[in-house]
Design a protein around this nucleic acid. Structure first.
Lengths: 229, 229
DNA sequence: TGTTGTGAACGCTTTCACAGCT
DNA sequence: AGCTGTGAAAGCGTTCACAACA
């Protein structure tokens, strides 16, 4: 008991920390030094109490009567989220989206370099996309091992997504970003985040219809919603 | 009181209905006629009680002792989500992502045709992307009015996202799919869904770090997670 | 005085467990 | 006998409200 186990932050709070981080980054670029929970709350579109609770999971890093220091809080959030290091990513499926992710430098800039892209189509294997050559899917194990990859992105067709997931899990991947519109069957030890624009649009459609039906001016905004929640 | 107001489905359930629909679609394609809450639960990676509660918000469309009919349930979900009609979409920001969305036929196939794409860059205006010519952002109002657009997708840079949102709201849009990594400031009558891969990766990073720190085999899967919640 | 940090209250979501039908 | 539909209980997440403190 009383094991020195790490404080586990509630899932809902974890999902908001990256958003706070983004905002603090903007504040830092504008040379803002301090902020109060009220200010961050307004920028994030949430309640000030929620901001304080969320930040309190990191520790007590604010100063009563004053607020929080931008750079110090950024450091703490990054530390907690595991962003003090880079996380190599491998992309499975070299279609339009897969290649776009491989070319797009934005991930690397955020600390998630794409270090490999694989496909099973012999016609694609060997082609160059951005800085990477498309590798044979059978190389997945080697890539993951050699480059210490911890995160896999699935950009295959729906039909191929489950075998892509199986292959990733087989080589030891425990974090998957899935762009295929299917529900992956994975062991509970694996974290999966689904990015499905169809699902997002259908959710919007529901609220849009509600507005249309019930005399208009209703209220259902989802400020901090993220694909999945 | 006792207004004949439409049953409001809890947000958490609304977010799962599109996933069920997807799965039922697959079942229908495999000529499956009926399913039980247990079966759908297994395919969706959730609990059977949750499936029954979720479906019960649509009405009592199952048969005790038997299960649910695939096609009938699909119809009911579509009706509830507002998918019996098409929802035209306008894209603001003709960069890589914006053009990809305009070209990609997948949305139209799902009932969300992109009927317009605009930008403020004079160099881009007039260029053809897919079936559409990139229009001047000042045409937004006309496009929205003429094509009865109800959903806007923001694919501008972070810097341009807020003004894109303001412009959309100005012309009466109440549903926004935002791809820019910023929190939009919008009235509460507008529904916003954010798709931010950076946020998704950082969430994965957190759970990955947790696994690394606390002796490995932990458990935190997020089967039905979707960008944002 | 002003703002944090947090127990306590509240409300939403999930799960349980079983009555009610077929 | 089998599976749905649903009250009731349990579990989370959010918000309140205020003590603690710079």
């Amino acid at each position: 008991m009383t094991q020195l186990q790490r404080r586990r932050i509630p899932d809902a709070a974890v999902a908001r920390l990256p958003v706070y981080l983004q905002i603090l980054n903007n504040l830092a670029n504008t040379n803002v030094l301090r902020f109060s929970s009220d200010e961050l709350a307004a920028l994030a579109g949430v309640n000030a109490a929620k901001v304080r609770k969320d930040l309190s999971y990191l520790g007590s890093y604010g100063t009563r009567g004053v607020g929080y220091e931008v750079t110090y809080l950024m450091y703490q959030i990054k530390r907690e989220l595991g962003l003090m290091r880079e996380w190599n990513v491998v992309v499975v499926g070299a279609g339009n989206l897969g290649c776009a992710l491989a070319k797009f430098g934005g991930f690397a800039a955020r600390g998630f370099p794409v270090v490999g892209i694989v496909d099973i189509d012999p016609k694609k294997i060997g082609q160059i996309t951005g800085l990477l050559a498309i590798a044979d899917a059978r190389e997945l194990g080697n890539i993951v091992r050699d480059q210490k990859v911890k995160i896999g992105a699935i950009t295959t067709s729906s039909a191929g997504a489950q075998s892509a997931a199986d292959a990733l899990i087989d080589v030891g991947i425990t974090s998957i970003l899935n762009f295929a519109p299917v529900v992956l069957s994975t062991p509970s030890s694996v974290s999966v985040r689904n990015v499905d624009l169809g699902v997002e649009l259908q959710i919007l459609s529901y609220y849009e219809q509600m507005r249309a039906e019930s005399g208009d001016s209703s209220q259902n905004s989802q400020k901090l919603s993220h694909v999945n929640a």
